[in-house]
């Protein structure tokens, strides 16, 4: 019986480990063992049974071809993780949830500020409004920052998806076509988010130009609208970037070694952008907005910075090629 098991192990050596191939291997092994047992029961000797079973195994390459996998250098499958379709589906889901929670965190922080402004607006009729307002600010900021921290910690679990891994051709095609289908929702979300941010100027204008509501109340509502708008960006943006990441990091087993060298160089650029570029933009945004009071339109810096990011990346990419 052990001989059969070893034979199957040998046959499946170097085959990418996926849910599908693991099941296939288990099924075939099970069949061969059944066959072996039946032969023994019908009076065959140990040797005869094993020879017959192995002779009836067939040609592994025929099978792998049908499954669309190719056997590779064992080293390659050891060096790189193989992601199954369900792994990647969980990844997209986790990214979406992360985007949603980060958006909620931003909304919570903005709600805190908006609450403070609202109470300040009614300071003349409500004694202690400043303190209630501050309490409001602190409470919501804690929720918001809490969400950031939780999501930041969860991001570590998704680390393995940020370096190259082996993907099966069928799965990659599937995800690329799913991304195409998702494009409409993505564009809709971006348009909705931008519209909300632009609309957010209305309450401020109403506050400034009419007597309907105090300007502070106007700013408060404006912040809330921006907060909701940001959720659209972070949620759909994260799902979109998950698909993009699968497209870039999911590599076919035959080419993964060659393509990874390139990836390592690009990673340095990505690191600079993620760790230095964006924090600087955020700092500029806050400093500028606080000192100049330009909250209504200074968020545009993120759109400009986003546009500039791809330019920087492609410039860095073209330098690399030289």
């Amino acid at each position: 019986m052990n001989t059969i098991r070893e034979y199957i192990e040998q046959m499946f050596k170097g085959v990418p480990v996926t849910e599908e191939t693991v099941q296939l291997k288990a099924d075939i092994l099970g069949n061969l063992e059944d066959k072996y047992t039946a032969l023994k029961e019908s009076g065959a000797s140990e040797h005869e049974a094993i020879v017959t079973v192995i002779a009836e195994f067939g040609d592994i390459d025929e099978l792998l071809e049908e499954f669309g996998v190719s056997r590779v250098n064992e080293q390659v499958t050891k060096n790189y993780e193989t992601m199954s379709e369900s792994d990647l589906r969980q990844y997209i889901q986790a990214k979406g949830k992360m985007g949603w929670n980060i958006g909620l965190g931003v909304l919570a922080c903005l709600t805190g500020v908006a609450g403070l402004l609202l109470f300040l607006a009614f300071q003349s009729v409500l004694s202690g409004a400043l303190y209630i307002g501050l309490l409001f600010l602190v409470g919501f900021s804690v929720i918001g920052i809490g969400l950031f921290i939780i999501e930041g910690m969860k991001a570590g679990e998704l680390e393995r998806f940020s370096s190259p891994y082996i993907i099966l051709p069928g799965d990659k095609e599937q995800f690329i076509s799913e991304q195409k289908d998702y494009k409409r929702s993505f564009i809709f979300s971006i348009v909705a988010g931008v519209s909300l941010c632009i609309m957010s100027i209305t309450p401020i204008l109403v506050g400034a130009l009419t007597a309907v509501l105090p300007i502070l109340v106007g700013v408060a509502f404006s912040l809330l609208l921006i907060g909701v708008g940001i959720i659209f960006f972070t949620y759909s943006g994260n799902i979109w970037s998950a698909y993009e990441s699968i497209k870039h990091n999911g590599k076919y087993v035959e080419v993964i070694e060659k393509e990874t060298v390139k990836h390592k160089r690009n990673k340095k650029v990505d690191y600079v952008i993620d760790e230095i570029y964006w924090p600087i933009i955020v700092v500029i945004y806050f400093v500028f907005s606080f000192t100049q009071g330009t909250w209504a339109w200074s968020w545009i810096i993120f759109i400009l910075a986003g546009a500039l990011e791809s330019t920087i990346k492609s410039l860095a990419g073209s330098w690399d090629k030289d």
């Binding site: 296939l24 099924d27 075939i28 069949n31 061969l32 009836e56 195994f57 067939g58 040609d59 592994i60 025929e62 099978l63 071809e65 049908e66 499954f67």
Partner: peptide, 14 residues
């Protein structure tokens, strides 16, 4: 006729 394992599983996949 005895069907080989790999032949059978190729057929299942197809």
């Amino acid at each position: 006729y005895i069907i080989k394992e790999t032949t059978m599983y190729s057929a299942f996949a197809r």
